[in-house]
Design a protein around this nucleic acid. Structure first.
Lengths: 238, 238
DNA sequence: GGCACCCTTCGGCCGGCACCGAAGGGTCCG
DNA sequence: CGGACCCTTCGGTGCCGGCCGAAGGGTGCC
Protein backbone atom coordinates (compact mmCIF):
# COMPACT_ATOMS: atom_id res chain seq x y z
CA UNK A 1 0.00 0.00 0.00
CA UNK A 2 3.01 2.27 -0.25
CA UNK A 3 1.51 3.62 -3.45
CA UNK A 4 4.34 2.21 -5.49
CA UNK A 5 3.76 -0.40 -8.11
CA UNK A 6 5.67 -3.64 -7.92
CA UNK A 7 8.73 -3.31 -10.18
CA UNK A 8 8.13 -6.78 -11.53
CA UNK A 9 4.83 -5.73 -13.06
CA UNK A 10 6.34 -4.48 -16.30
CA UNK A 11 8.36 -7.64 -16.79
CA UNK A 12 5.44 -9.85 -15.94
CA UNK A 13 3.20 -8.03 -18.40
CA UNK A 14 5.85 -8.24 -21.10
CA UNK A 15 6.30 -11.95 -20.57
CA UNK A 16 2.58 -12.62 -20.65
CA UNK A 17 2.31 -10.35 -23.68
CA UNK A 18 4.52 -12.72 -25.62
CA UNK A 19 1.92 -15.43 -25.14
CA UNK A 20 -1.09 -13.16 -25.40
CA UNK A 21 -1.48 -13.48 -29.13
CA UNK A 22 -3.31 -16.30 -30.76
CA UNK A 23 -0.71 -16.84 -33.45
CA UNK A 24 2.19 -16.90 -31.01
CA UNK A 25 0.20 -19.10 -28.64
CA UNK A 26 -0.43 -21.54 -31.45
CA UNK A 27 3.31 -21.64 -32.16
CA UNK A 28 4.18 -22.32 -28.55
CA UNK A 29 1.61 -25.09 -28.31
CA UNK A 30 2.90 -26.65 -31.50
CA UNK A 31 6.47 -26.46 -30.24
CA UNK A 32 5.44 -28.29 -27.08
CA UNK A 33 6.21 -31.46 -29.01
CA UNK A 34 9.85 -30.70 -28.27
CA UNK A 35 10.95 -30.74 -31.88
CA UNK A 36 12.40 -27.92 -33.95
CA UNK A 37 10.07 -26.44 -36.54
CA UNK A 38 10.94 -24.24 -39.48
CA UNK A 39 9.41 -20.80 -39.77
CA UNK A 40 7.45 -21.88 -42.82
CA UNK A 41 5.94 -24.88 -41.10
CA UNK A 42 4.76 -22.71 -38.25
CA UNK A 43 3.36 -20.11 -40.63
CA UNK A 44 1.27 -22.73 -42.39
CA UNK A 45 0.26 -24.24 -39.08
CA UNK A 46 -0.90 -20.91 -37.71
CA UNK A 47 -2.47 -19.78 -40.96
CA UNK A 48 -0.67 -16.47 -41.36
CA UNK A 49 1.74 -15.01 -43.90
CA UNK A 50 5.39 -15.93 -43.63
CA UNK A 51 6.30 -12.32 -43.07
CA UNK A 52 3.93 -12.06 -40.14
CA UNK A 53 5.29 -15.16 -38.54
CA UNK A 54 8.85 -14.02 -38.98
CA UNK A 55 8.14 -11.04 -36.77
CA UNK A 56 6.47 -13.21 -34.17
CA UNK A 57 9.50 -15.44 -34.02
CA UNK A 58 11.73 -12.41 -33.53
CA UNK A 59 9.74 -11.46 -30.48
CA UNK A 60 9.63 -14.92 -29.00
CA UNK A 61 13.36 -15.36 -29.46
CA UNK A 62 14.12 -11.92 -28.06
CA UNK A 63 11.90 -12.71 -25.10
CA UNK A 64 13.85 -15.85 -24.37
CA UNK A 65 11.00 -18.27 -24.99
CA UNK A 66 12.45 -19.76 -28.16
CA UNK A 67 15.90 -20.79 -29.28
CA UNK A 68 16.72 -20.58 -32.95
CA UNK A 69 19.22 -22.16 -35.24
CA UNK A 70 19.80 -21.12 -38.79
CA UNK A 71 20.69 -23.81 -41.28
CA UNK A 72 21.12 -22.61 -44.83
CA UNK A 73 17.96 -20.94 -45.90
CA UNK A 74 15.97 -22.50 -43.06
CA UNK A 75 15.25 -21.01 -39.67
CA UNK A 76 14.73 -23.72 -37.12
CA UNK A 77 13.11 -22.79 -33.89
CA UNK A 78 12.34 -24.71 -30.70
CA UNK A 79 11.35 -24.02 -27.12
CA UNK A 80 14.23 -22.49 -25.20
CA UNK A 81 14.16 -25.18 -22.53
CA UNK A 82 12.21 -27.25 -20.07
CA UNK A 83 11.31 -24.16 -18.06
CA UNK A 84 9.49 -22.65 -20.98
CA UNK A 85 7.73 -25.92 -21.75
CA UNK A 86 6.58 -26.14 -18.15
CA UNK A 87 5.35 -22.58 -18.25
CA UNK A 88 3.25 -23.10 -21.36
CA UNK A 89 1.88 -26.35 -20.00
CA UNK A 90 0.93 -24.73 -16.73
CA UNK A 91 -0.87 -21.94 -18.51
CA UNK A 92 -2.67 -24.32 -20.82
CA UNK A 93 -3.67 -26.45 -17.86
CA UNK A 94 -5.60 -23.50 -16.44
CA UNK A 95 -7.96 -23.47 -19.41
CA UNK A 96 -11.37 -24.86 -18.58
CA UNK A 97 -11.89 -28.23 -20.23
CA UNK A 98 -14.90 -27.04 -22.18
CA UNK A 99 -12.98 -24.26 -23.80
CA UNK A 100 -10.79 -25.14 -26.69
CA UNK A 101 -12.71 -28.19 -27.80
CA UNK A 102 -13.66 -28.24 -31.40
CA UNK A 103 -15.75 -30.79 -33.24
CA UNK A 104 -13.54 -33.29 -34.97
CA UNK A 105 -13.83 -33.23 -38.72
CA UNK A 106 -13.39 -36.41 -40.60
CA UNK A 107 -12.05 -39.87 -39.96
CA UNK A 108 -8.42 -38.97 -40.50
CA UNK A 109 -8.46 -36.35 -37.78
CA UNK A 110 -10.43 -38.60 -35.45
CA UNK A 111 -7.88 -41.35 -35.79
CA UNK A 112 -5.01 -38.93 -35.29
CA UNK A 113 -6.76 -37.56 -32.22
CA UNK A 114 -7.28 -40.94 -30.68
CA UNK A 115 -3.66 -41.87 -31.32
CA UNK A 116 -2.63 -38.70 -29.50
CA UNK A 117 -4.93 -39.50 -26.60
CA UNK A 118 -3.43 -42.99 -26.39
CA UNK A 119 0.16 -41.85 -26.15
CA UNK A 120 2.25 -38.86 -27.09
CA UNK A 121 5.25 -36.84 -26.06
CA UNK A 122 4.80 -33.71 -24.02
CA UNK A 123 8.01 -31.75 -24.63
CA UNK A 124 10.47 -34.39 -23.41
CA UNK A 125 8.32 -36.87 -21.48
CA UNK A 126 5.45 -39.24 -22.17
CA UNK A 127 1.82 -38.16 -21.85
CA UNK A 128 -1.62 -39.33 -22.81
CA UNK A 129 -3.01 -42.58 -21.47
CA UNK A 130 0.45 -44.09 -21.85
CA UNK A 131 2.00 -41.45 -19.59
CA UNK A 132 -0.78 -41.86 -17.06
CA UNK A 133 -0.46 -45.64 -17.08
CA UNK A 134 3.27 -45.47 -16.44
CA UNK A 135 2.84 -42.94 -13.67
CA UNK A 136 0.08 -44.97 -12.04
CA UNK A 137 2.14 -48.15 -12.25
CA UNK A 138 5.14 -46.45 -10.66
CA UNK A 139 2.91 -45.14 -7.91
CA UNK A 140 1.17 -48.46 -7.27
CA UNK A 141 4.53 -50.17 -6.87
CA UNK A 142 5.74 -47.64 -4.34
CA UNK A 143 8.34 -46.19 -6.67
CA UNK A 144 6.70 -42.79 -6.91
CA UNK A 145 4.87 -40.88 -4.21
CA UNK A 146 1.94 -38.70 -5.14
CA UNK A 147 0.00 -38.57 -1.89
CA UNK A 148 2.40 -36.32 -0.01
CA UNK A 149 3.70 -34.30 -2.91
CA UNK A 150 5.41 -35.67 -5.96
CA UNK A 151 8.73 -37.45 -5.60
CA UNK A 152 10.51 -40.71 -6.37
CA UNK A 153 11.09 -43.00 -3.42
CA UNK A 154 14.32 -44.83 -2.61
CA UNK A 155 12.82 -47.86 -4.29
CA UNK A 156 12.06 -45.68 -7.29
CA UNK A 157 15.69 -44.63 -7.59
CA UNK A 158 16.61 -48.29 -7.47
CA UNK A 159 14.11 -49.15 -10.19
CA UNK A 160 15.56 -46.62 -12.59
CA UNK A 161 19.08 -47.88 -11.88
CA UNK A 162 18.02 -51.50 -12.35
CA UNK A 163 16.29 -50.68 -15.61
CA UNK A 164 19.48 -49.08 -16.87
CA UNK A 165 18.01 -45.61 -17.06
CA UNK A 166 20.54 -43.10 -15.73
CA UNK A 167 19.21 -40.06 -13.89
CA UNK A 168 21.27 -36.89 -13.97
CA UNK A 169 21.00 -35.63 -10.41
CA UNK A 170 22.14 -32.44 -8.81
CA UNK A 171 21.00 -30.14 -11.60
CA UNK A 172 18.56 -27.33 -11.09
CA UNK A 173 15.75 -29.21 -12.74
CA UNK A 174 13.63 -31.28 -10.36
CA UNK A 175 14.07 -35.02 -10.59
CA UNK A 176 10.34 -35.66 -10.55
CA UNK A 177 7.59 -33.20 -11.28
CA UNK A 178 3.88 -33.51 -11.94
CA UNK A 179 2.64 -32.43 -15.34
CA UNK A 180 -1.11 -32.13 -15.73
CA UNK A 181 -2.25 -34.08 -18.73
CA UNK A 182 -4.35 -32.18 -21.20
CA UNK A 183 -6.58 -35.01 -22.41
CA UNK A 184 -6.72 -37.00 -19.18
CA UNK A 185 -6.60 -34.08 -16.75
CA UNK A 186 -4.51 -36.13 -14.39
CA UNK A 187 -0.88 -35.70 -13.37
CA UNK A 188 1.88 -37.69 -14.98
CA UNK A 189 5.61 -37.92 -14.47
CA UNK A 190 7.76 -35.08 -15.81
CA UNK A 191 11.10 -33.63 -14.81
CA UNK A 192 14.46 -35.35 -15.15
CA UNK A 193 13.01 -38.80 -14.50
CA UNK A 194 10.15 -38.30 -16.94
CA UNK A 195 12.52 -37.18 -19.65
CA UNK A 196 14.92 -40.04 -19.01
CA UNK A 197 12.11 -42.57 -19.09
CA UNK A 198 10.80 -41.20 -22.37
CA UNK A 199 14.24 -41.13 -23.94
CA UNK A 200 14.97 -44.66 -22.85
CA UNK A 201 11.59 -45.92 -24.03
CA UNK A 202 12.25 -44.56 -27.50
CA UNK A 203 15.87 -45.71 -27.65
CA UNK A 204 15.18 -49.18 -26.33
CA UNK A 205 12.30 -49.62 -28.74
CA UNK A 206 9.61 -49.75 -26.09
CA UNK A 207 7.79 -47.07 -28.03
CA UNK A 208 8.00 -45.54 -31.46
CA UNK A 209 6.75 -42.36 -32.98
CA UNK A 210 3.86 -42.61 -35.37
CA UNK A 211 4.91 -40.80 -38.51
CA UNK A 212 6.44 -37.45 -37.76
CA UNK A 213 3.82 -36.56 -35.23
CA UNK A 214 3.86 -36.32 -31.47
CA UNK A 215 1.82 -39.48 -31.15
CA UNK A 216 3.64 -42.52 -29.80
CA UNK A 217 2.76 -46.20 -29.89
CA UNK A 218 3.92 -49.01 -27.64
CA UNK A 219 5.70 -51.81 -29.51
CA UNK A 220 5.50 -55.54 -28.81
CA UNK A 221 8.89 -55.35 -27.15
CA UNK A 222 7.64 -52.49 -25.04
CA UNK A 223 4.62 -54.43 -23.90
CA UNK A 224 6.82 -57.31 -22.74
CA UNK A 225 9.35 -55.11 -21.01
CA UNK A 226 6.83 -52.88 -19.31
CA UNK A 227 4.85 -55.88 -18.18
CA UNK A 228 7.98 -57.39 -16.67
CA UNK A 229 9.32 -54.21 -15.13
CA UNK A 230 6.13 -52.54 -13.95
CA UNK A 231 3.44 -55.15 -14.13
CA UNK A 232 1.64 -53.17 -16.79
CA UNK A 233 -1.08 -55.26 -18.39
CA UNK A 234 -0.57 -55.30 -22.15
CA UNK A 235 -4.16 -54.44 -22.95
CA UNK A 236 -4.03 -51.16 -21.06
CA UNK A 237 -1.77 -49.63 -23.67
CA UNK A 238 -3.86 -50.21 -26.76
CA UNK B 1 1.53 -30.27 -39.29
CA UNK B 2 -2.05 -30.89 -40.36
CA UNK B 3 -2.33 -27.17 -41.12
CA UNK B 4 -4.84 -26.71 -38.33
CA UNK B 5 -4.13 -24.50 -35.39
CA UNK B 6 -4.44 -25.94 -31.90
CA UNK B 7 -7.91 -25.05 -30.58
CA UNK B 8 -6.42 -24.13 -27.23
CA UNK B 9 -4.47 -21.27 -28.79
CA UNK B 10 -7.29 -18.75 -28.50
CA UNK B 11 -7.92 -19.61 -24.87
CA UNK B 12 -4.26 -19.54 -24.03
CA UNK B 13 -3.82 -16.15 -25.66
CA UNK B 14 -6.87 -14.80 -23.85
CA UNK B 15 -5.61 -16.03 -20.51
CA UNK B 16 -2.15 -14.58 -21.05
CA UNK B 17 -3.78 -11.39 -22.30
CA UNK B 18 -5.34 -10.89 -18.90
CA UNK B 19 -1.88 -10.69 -17.39
CA UNK B 20 -0.26 -8.91 -20.32
CA UNK B 21 -0.97 -5.43 -19.05
CA UNK B 22 1.22 -3.63 -16.61
CA UNK B 23 -1.65 -2.36 -14.51
CA UNK B 24 -3.35 -5.72 -14.27
CA UNK B 25 -0.02 -7.40 -13.59
CA UNK B 26 0.61 -4.98 -10.75
CA UNK B 27 -2.78 -5.85 -9.29
CA UNK B 28 -2.13 -9.56 -9.46
CA UNK B 29 1.26 -9.17 -7.82
CA UNK B 30 -0.22 -7.05 -5.08
CA UNK B 31 -2.99 -9.58 -4.50
CA UNK B 32 -0.39 -12.30 -4.08
CA UNK B 33 -0.38 -11.36 -0.42
CA UNK B 34 -3.59 -13.37 -0.16
CA UNK B 35 -5.67 -10.56 1.26
CA UNK B 36 -8.69 -8.83 -0.24
CA UNK B 37 -8.09 -5.33 -1.56
CA UNK B 38 -10.63 -2.69 -2.43
CA UNK B 39 -10.77 -1.30 -5.93
CA UNK B 40 -9.62 2.08 -4.68
CA UNK B 41 -6.57 0.67 -2.93
CA UNK B 42 -5.55 -1.10 -6.09
CA UNK B 43 -6.11 2.01 -8.19
CA UNK B 44 -3.82 4.05 -5.96
CA UNK B 45 -1.31 1.22 -5.86
CA UNK B 46 -1.21 0.95 -9.64
CA UNK B 47 -1.30 4.68 -10.20
CA UNK B 48 -4.32 4.83 -12.53
CA UNK B 49 -7.78 6.39 -12.35
CA UNK B 50 -10.47 4.53 -10.46
CA UNK B 51 -12.52 4.23 -13.62
CA UNK B 52 -9.65 2.58 -15.43
CA UNK B 53 -9.09 0.11 -12.67
CA UNK B 54 -12.75 -0.75 -12.48
CA UNK B 55 -12.62 -2.00 -16.05
CA UNK B 56 -9.50 -4.00 -15.34
CA UNK B 57 -11.18 -5.70 -12.43
CA UNK B 58 -14.15 -6.58 -14.62
CA UNK B 59 -11.85 -8.39 -16.99
CA UNK B 60 -9.91 -10.21 -14.32
CA UNK B 61 -13.11 -11.36 -12.63
CA UNK B 62 -14.69 -12.40 -15.91
CA UNK B 63 -11.53 -14.31 -16.74
CA UNK B 64 -11.74 -16.23 -13.49
CA UNK B 65 -8.52 -14.90 -12.02
CA UNK B 66 -10.15 -12.85 -9.30
CA UNK B 67 -13.07 -13.37 -6.96
CA UNK B 68 -15.02 -10.35 -5.83
CA UNK B 69 -17.26 -9.53 -2.95
CA UNK B 70 -19.31 -6.37 -2.69
CA UNK B 71 -19.78 -4.92 0.75
CA UNK B 72 -21.74 -1.72 0.85
CA UNK B 73 -20.03 0.76 -1.35
CA UNK B 74 -16.81 -1.22 -1.40
CA UNK B 75 -15.70 -3.78 -3.94
CA UNK B 76 -13.35 -6.27 -2.38
CA UNK B 77 -11.30 -8.39 -4.68
CA UNK B 78 -8.88 -11.26 -4.12
CA UNK B 79 -7.18 -13.99 -6.09
CA UNK B 80 -9.68 -16.63 -7.14
CA UNK B 81 -7.69 -19.42 -5.51
CA UNK B 82 -4.43 -21.19 -4.97
CA UNK B 83 -4.25 -22.17 -8.63
CA UNK B 84 -4.20 -18.56 -9.71
CA UNK B 85 -1.62 -17.68 -7.08
CA UNK B 86 0.58 -20.49 -8.29
CA UNK B 87 0.19 -19.37 -11.86
CA UNK B 88 1.23 -15.80 -11.15
CA UNK B 89 4.15 -16.98 -9.02
CA UNK B 90 5.34 -19.31 -11.75
CA UNK B 91 5.20 -16.56 -14.33
CA UNK B 92 6.99 -14.10 -12.07
CA UNK B 93 9.63 -16.72 -11.33
CA UNK B 94 10.54 -16.76 -15.02
CA UNK B 95 11.64 -13.14 -14.91
CA UNK B 96 15.39 -12.73 -15.01
CA UNK B 97 16.68 -11.55 -11.62
CA UNK B 98 18.18 -8.41 -13.09
CA UNK B 99 14.89 -7.29 -14.52
CA UNK B 100 12.45 -5.72 -12.16
CA UNK B 101 14.98 -4.39 -9.71
CA UNK B 102 14.70 -0.75 -8.92
CA UNK B 103 16.97 1.37 -6.78
CA UNK B 104 15.52 1.68 -3.31
CA UNK B 105 14.56 5.19 -2.38
CA UNK B 106 14.85 6.25 1.19
CA UNK B 107 15.29 4.61 4.54
CA UNK B 108 11.64 3.77 5.04
CA UNK B 109 11.46 1.72 1.87
CA UNK B 110 14.80 0.07 2.61
CA UNK B 111 13.59 -1.08 6.00
CA UNK B 112 10.29 -2.31 4.58
CA UNK B 113 12.20 -4.17 1.90
CA UNK B 114 14.51 -5.88 4.35
CA UNK B 115 11.54 -6.88 6.51
CA UNK B 116 9.96 -8.45 3.44
CA UNK B 117 13.18 -10.27 2.61
CA UNK B 118 13.35 -11.59 6.16
CA UNK B 119 9.88 -13.07 6.20
CA UNK B 120 6.58 -12.61 4.43
CA UNK B 121 3.52 -14.43 3.25
CA UNK B 122 3.30 -15.63 -0.32
CA UNK B 123 -0.44 -16.05 -0.88
CA UNK B 124 -1.13 -18.54 1.92
CA UNK B 125 2.31 -19.80 2.92
CA UNK B 126 5.51 -18.39 4.36
CA UNK B 127 8.31 -17.08 2.16
CA UNK B 128 11.44 -14.99 2.40
CA UNK B 129 14.37 -16.14 4.51
CA UNK B 130 11.88 -17.41 7.07
CA UNK B 131 10.18 -19.68 4.53
CA UNK B 132 13.53 -20.92 3.29
CA UNK B 133 14.77 -21.60 6.80
CA UNK B 134 11.67 -23.65 7.65
CA UNK B 135 11.91 -25.60 4.41
CA UNK B 136 15.60 -26.28 4.91
CA UNK B 137 15.05 -27.39 8.48
CA UNK B 138 12.28 -29.76 7.44
CA UNK B 139 14.54 -31.16 4.75
CA UNK B 140 17.57 -31.54 7.00
CA UNK B 141 15.49 -33.51 9.51
CA UNK B 142 14.24 -35.91 6.87
CA UNK B 143 10.68 -34.61 7.05
CA UNK B 144 10.66 -33.22 3.53
CA UNK B 145 12.28 -34.67 0.44
CA UNK B 146 13.66 -32.31 -2.16
CA UNK B 147 16.30 -34.43 -3.84
CA UNK B 148 13.93 -36.75 -5.69
CA UNK B 149 11.08 -34.35 -6.27
CA UNK B 150 9.19 -32.49 -3.58
CA UNK B 151 7.17 -34.42 -1.02
CA UNK B 152 6.71 -34.93 2.69
CA UNK B 153 8.06 -38.18 4.09
CA UNK B 154 6.27 -40.46 6.53
CA UNK B 155 8.24 -38.81 9.30
CA UNK B 156 7.07 -35.46 7.95
CA UNK B 157 3.44 -36.49 8.22
CA UNK B 158 4.14 -37.51 11.80
CA UNK B 159 5.79 -34.19 12.56
CA UNK B 160 2.77 -32.21 11.44
CA UNK B 161 0.48 -34.44 13.48
CA UNK B 162 2.70 -34.14 16.56
CA UNK B 163 2.84 -30.39 16.20
CA UNK B 164 -0.94 -30.28 16.14
CA UNK B 165 -1.14 -28.99 12.60
CA UNK B 166 -3.90 -30.83 10.72
CA UNK B 167 -3.41 -31.49 7.03
CA UNK B 168 -6.47 -31.75 4.83
CA UNK B 169 -5.63 -34.69 2.58
CA UNK B 170 -7.40 -36.09 -0.40
CA UNK B 171 -8.20 -32.78 -2.07
CA UNK B 172 -7.07 -31.82 -5.52
CA UNK B 173 -4.42 -29.50 -4.23
CA UNK B 174 -1.01 -31.14 -3.70
CA UNK B 175 0.03 -31.68 -0.11
CA UNK B 176 3.51 -30.33 -0.73
CA UNK B 177 4.67 -28.19 -3.58
CA UNK B 178 7.79 -26.17 -4.29
CA UNK B 179 7.36 -22.43 -4.68
CA UNK B 180 10.34 -20.52 -6.01
CA UNK B 181 11.17 -17.65 -3.72
CA UNK B 182 11.45 -14.28 -5.37
CA UNK B 183 14.12 -12.74 -3.18
CA UNK B 184 16.05 -15.89 -2.35
CA UNK B 185 15.52 -17.69 -5.65
CA UNK B 186 15.29 -21.00 -3.84
CA UNK B 187 12.31 -23.30 -3.39
CA UNK B 188 10.22 -23.25 -0.26
CA UNK B 189 7.26 -25.24 0.97
CA UNK B 190 3.86 -24.45 -0.52
CA UNK B 191 0.71 -26.46 -1.07
CA UNK B 192 -1.60 -27.75 1.65
CA UNK B 193 1.24 -28.29 4.11
CA UNK B 194 2.73 -24.87 3.47
CA UNK B 195 -0.61 -23.19 4.00
CA UNK B 196 -1.32 -25.16 7.15
CA UNK B 197 2.09 -24.35 8.57
CA UNK B 198 1.63 -20.65 7.87
CA UNK B 199 -1.85 -20.58 9.36
CA UNK B 200 -0.71 -22.40 12.47
CA UNK B 201 2.32 -20.18 12.87
CA UNK B 202 0.14 -17.09 12.86
CA UNK B 203 -2.57 -18.57 15.08
CA UNK B 204 -0.17 -20.03 17.62
CA UNK B 205 1.73 -16.76 17.79
CA UNK B 206 4.94 -18.09 16.31
CA UNK B 207 4.82 -15.21 13.86
CA UNK B 208 2.94 -11.94 13.54
CA UNK B 209 2.26 -9.59 10.70
CA UNK B 210 4.11 -6.30 10.72
CA UNK B 211 1.50 -3.61 10.33
CA UNK B 212 -0.92 -4.39 7.55
CA UNK B 213 1.77 -5.50 5.18
CA UNK B 214 2.81 -8.88 3.90
CA UNK B 215 5.92 -8.83 6.02
CA UNK B 216 6.01 -11.25 8.94
CA UNK B 217 8.21 -11.36 12.01
CA UNK B 218 9.05 -14.30 14.28
CA UNK B 219 8.05 -13.75 17.90
CA UNK B 220 9.96 -14.86 20.98
CA UNK B 221 7.48 -17.68 21.42
CA UNK B 222 8.05 -18.66 17.83
CA UNK B 223 11.79 -18.78 18.30
CA UNK B 224 11.42 -21.13 21.25
CA UNK B 225 8.89 -23.39 19.58
CA UNK B 226 10.70 -23.58 16.26
CA UNK B 227 13.95 -24.26 18.02
CA UNK B 228 12.36 -27.10 19.96
CA UNK B 229 10.39 -28.55 17.07
CA UNK B 230 12.83 -28.09 14.21
CA UNK B 231 16.14 -27.25 15.77
CA UNK B 232 16.09 -23.83 14.16
CA UNK B 233 18.75 -21.62 15.66
CA UNK B 234 17.16 -18.39 16.92
CA UNK B 235 19.67 -16.14 15.24
CA UNK B 236 18.81 -17.40 11.79
CA UNK B 237 15.44 -15.72 11.88
CA UNK B 238 16.47 -12.16 12.63
C1' DG C 1 -32.41 14.96 4.36
C1' DG C 2 -27.97 16.22 3.09
C1' DC C 3 -23.42 15.16 2.21
C1' DA C 4 -19.24 12.58 1.56
C1' DC C 5 -17.49 8.60 -0.31
C1' DC C 6 -16.69 4.54 -3.46
C1' DC C 7 -17.47 2.82 -7.55
C1' DT C 8 -19.27 2.48 -12.46
C1' DT C 9 -20.65 4.00 -17.11
C1' DC C 10 -19.80 6.61 -21.14
C1' DG C 11 -17.58 9.19 -24.79
C1' DG C 12 -13.41 10.30 -26.79
C1' DC C 13 -8.54 10.15 -27.52
C1' DC C 14 -4.39 7.94 -28.60
C1' DG C 15 -0.84 4.53 -29.19
C1' DG C 16 0.50 0.05 -30.22
C1' DC C 17 0.43 -3.95 -32.80
C1' DA C 18 -1.05 -7.81 -35.83
C1' DC C 19 -1.61 -8.34 -40.49
C1' DC C 20 -0.65 -8.29 -45.49
C1' DG C 21 1.75 -7.89 -50.03
C1' DA C 22 5.60 -6.47 -52.55
C1' DA C 23 10.32 -6.31 -52.94
C1' DG C 24 14.85 -7.98 -51.82
C1' DG C 25 18.64 -10.97 -50.06
C1' DG C 26 20.59 -15.35 -49.09
C1' DT C 27 20.93 -20.41 -50.16
C1' DC C 28 20.74 -24.55 -52.69
C1' DC C 29 20.25 -27.13 -57.00
C1' DG C 30 20.38 -28.13 -61.68
C1' DC D 1 24.24 -18.93 -64.04
C1' DG D 2 19.36 -19.06 -63.75
C1' DG D 3 15.63 -20.40 -61.10
C1' DA D 4 13.23 -22.16 -57.14
C1' DC D 5 12.85 -21.74 -52.47
C1' DC D 6 12.94 -19.80 -47.63
C1' DC D 7 13.01 -16.06 -45.14
C1' DT D 8 13.21 -10.96 -43.94
C1' DT D 9 12.39 -5.97 -44.38
C1' DC D 10 9.38 -2.27 -45.27
C1' DG D 11 5.36 0.61 -45.92
C1' DG D 12 0.61 0.87 -45.13
C1' DT D 13 -3.83 -0.28 -43.02
C1' DG D 14 -7.10 -1.20 -39.62
C1' DC D 15 -8.41 -2.50 -35.18
C1' DC D 16 -8.18 -3.27 -30.46
C1' DG D 17 -7.56 -1.67 -25.93
C1' DG D 18 -5.80 1.28 -22.16
C1' DC D 19 -6.37 5.76 -20.44
C1' DC D 20 -8.79 9.84 -18.71
C1' DG D 21 -12.48 13.04 -16.95
C1' DA D 22 -17.18 14.00 -16.35
C1' DA D 23 -21.43 12.48 -14.97
C1' DG D 24 -24.35 9.41 -12.42
C1' DG D 25 -25.90 5.87 -9.04
C1' DG D 26 -25.62 3.44 -4.81
C1' DT D 27 -24.19 3.43 0.17
C1' DG D 28 -23.31 5.00 4.74
C1' DC D 29 -22.81 8.64 8.12
C1' DC D 30 -24.09 12.82 10.53
Amino acid sequence: MSGIKDPRAAGLAALAGLIADETRAACLLALLDGRAWTAGELARHAGVAASTLSEHLDKLVAGGLLAQERQGRHRYVRLAGARVATLVEDLAAQLPPAEGRRPVRGLREASAGSAMARGRTCYDHLAGRLGIALTDALTARGLLRQDTGFALTEAGLGWFAAAGIPLARGGRRPLARACLDWTERRPHLAGVAGAALCRHALEAGWCERIGSERAVRVTDTGERELSALLGLSPGALR
